[in-house]
Design a protein around this nucleic acid. Sequence first.
RNA 1: GCGAUUAUGGUGAAGUGGUUAACACGCUAGGUUGUGGUCCUAGUAUGCGUGGGUUCGAUCCCCACUAAUCGCCCCA
Length: 433
Amino acid sequence: MIIKPKGTIDLLSDDAKKWKYVNRIIDELMEKYNYNYIRTPLFESTDLFKRTVGESTDIVSKETYDFLDRGERPMTLRPEGTAGVVRSFIENKMYGDPSLPIKVYYNGTMYRYERPQSGRDREFTQFGVEVLGTTDEMVDAEIISIPVNLCKLLGLKGLKVKINSLGDQESKDKYKEVLYNYFKDKIEGLCPDCKARLEKNPLRILDCKVDKDSDILKNAPKMLDYLNEASLIRFNKVQDYLNSLEIDFEVDSNIVRGLDYYDHTVFELEANVKGFGSNNVLCGGGRYSKLIEELGGPSMSAMGFAIGLGRLVMALNLEEVDMKYKKDVDLFIIYNTEVEKQYAAKLINDLRLNGFVVEMDYLNRNIKGQFKQADRLNTKYYLILSNDDLINNEIKLKNSKTKKEEIVNLDYLLYFLEENIENEDLENEENLY
RNA sequence: GCGAUUAUGGUGAAGUGGUUAACACGCUAGGUUGUGGUCCUAGUAUGCGUGGGUUCGAUCCCCACUAAUCGCCCCA
């Protein structure tokens, strides 16, 4: 038997319906925000990701799916969405669009060659947005509001929004130096991983899980104290806008994103959900002011975020949020003879074109089996064909809940169904998806 | 890359060094029910992840492999 590759999933049955529902909410929300859907390639030149990731190089070589195409060109399955969007922004000269900023959203699969664990697969889906071509603080706030509002619409509670500012290049460099010097002589008190991080990426010591309660970390110099004036003013403005948007947030100076290209605002959304694995960060994002230029575009700033749909749906499931999807079928046509089956074929087509969800048996089950199957599918009405009725231009309907049977004249069938089924749907609209 | 745990039928699972591998659900057939849902009867793993080893004998002990789950690292 051939089995699926490690770290991949088959999205099936009810889970698939839940994802469809979440995706629909995403699309609707992005319409309101007036962000455009963008789809970039699933694979890009390896160079693109090498450059965006920057200094922390070993990430790329170790954790991406790399391959040579038949022309021996190095290619990489995208590990994230930002790089492709920025590449597209430059390649399509969107920076010249008079209606800047460019506001786009993507929703697609990403690939990282990692050891799978709870909330982490090798193939996973991210919904994300990017706003390119403005430094306006309102955009920072607006972008943070998107995942917050998405969760609100979905009914997910227990979220924590954490924000921080890394400041501009000047502030960032200065802070890194201060931090390095601070940790240098205290490194013996930290965990082995942190020792390695000191040289590689001292910022990440700040969100170490092992040492998070140690005094060394608690007394470490804070990024916010090293922001220069312009950066600080900017950060305060972002917070003002967040308050206007009525978003609860917490400034956490330990929020550091892993990559070099971020500056100014960075943020994360944490799920405080019981039963969640150790990977409880639902979404993260931030501003990046140098990346567009580094990839050969003009000097423009942008900001974005991405949210993992797998983790989002996991959180929704744990919180027992009702992801509204259609759980039943309207009608199941029950037949006995071949003549009746022929008629069923005609009828099923008519009914479907008139907007009903209709099923019939395809396994030559006997009547009993057909009823069973209809029940499995949560049928609202059984439509029981019999030659005698058909000759009289009539059809027998049985309500699966009330057990009430009615003989309906065929000419009035649609009218009857609209009365009885569509009204029911209107009463509980959550049944729609 | 490192570590822990697990691996029995369509599903959830119990179990033992030795003739027929519990139980439940599901499924199939038949009976009852005015045509299903209730109820009754029967059937439903020659097999316990794969390959070796120990043993008179292994699903149960040992080793390797594979896979799953969770954690570390990393987290774009």
